[in-house]
Amino acid sequence: MSLRHCLPLPRFAALAVLLVCLLASDRSLAETLPAPEGPVLLEVTGAISKGNARDDRGRPLAELDLALLERFGGTLLETETPWTQGPVVFEGIAGAQLIDLLGVEGQTAAAVALNDYRVDIPVSDFRDAELLIAYRRDGEAMRVRDKGPLWIVFPFSDDAKYGSNDYLARSVWQLHRLDFR
């Protein structure tokens, strides 16, 4: 029995096209966001359209290591902070860069720190407020004991509004996960 006989060609073709499509879509996901190679510093879940893995419910999940953050980030911000002395230069991925990179669609991000501190940050802050997810401080990677490895900072020196309690609460140290909704 030939294959052609057993399986009607149109059906087979349709299945093949579906498979190819699925593969292609998976490949495109992989193309836009490479898989992490080093330890994952930031997990991004929820209302994002691109990622490099899938969560339990099959939605896109972005696992970002330092190399990926550096590749898509590289934004510098010089500012003073309430927790440091004198001006500090942060290097990180800007909120807008992250949104572009992952195709964020939600309105709010729940930012979770290593100690399970959790705060909601409006996506508008990512887009407009010069929010920076810093991975280096004064050129050095930040240890967990120094509020690293990721630290959400705002340009505190540029605008007094970032000194308000709301923004101080959104300046998450030891950032670990972002969940967009």
Partner: peptide
Amino acid sequence: TLRLEIFVSRVTVLRS
């Protein structure tokens, strides 16, 4: 180790 790091960061905060 991670928990130790976080604990140390908290000690630092208290000292600051």
